[in-house]
Amino acid sequence: MTQQPTNSAARAGGVAAPPPTGPVRLTINGQQHTLQLAPWTTLLDALREYLHLTGTKKGCDHGQCGACTVLVDGKRINSCLTLAVMHEDEDITTIEGLGTPETLHPLQQAFVDHDAFQCGYCTPGQICSAQGLLNEGRAHTEAEIREHMSGNVCRCGAYVGILNAVKEVVDRKSSEHRS
């Protein structure tokens, strides 16, 4: 469900006024889009309902579960707690921008190899968050990875696999740095 205004004329029984939409320029996975959006459209709803990029998931819609995690200029954020109109002229990356079905992103491959999901609903957010963690470069040990991934909840409890998957990619990245 997209976020609908709750005080519209329509609800009061009158004739619905056209929503005050305006053009919003978004750059998603390297592609530019101009969408007609009401200001209250969250970035998450813009991605899912207007661009049909449904890889990004709506879990709690309150910034508590991390399923909606995307990268903005390389930094991970919760797309449910921000308005699309606040992100014009920024570089937004969703799960659709990381790897392809033919050539998986290293994190996607590691999630497959380590059985890091059951239902898969949290997985796009987990992977985008892990990419943010890699970009930050501050988490190395298992304890650090656990802490730095604490904004992503997995209802199936696949944490052991998730930790192993992220650790493998973190380790590979640091050994590439050393060599």
């Binding site: 995690t69 954020i77 919760n78 921000t82 943010g132």
Partner: peptide, 9 residues
């Protein structure tokens, strides 16, 4: 406080 995602925002 919060999570890395929230602290980034």
């Amino acid at each position: 406080g919060a999570s890395p995602q929230l602290r980034n925002m």
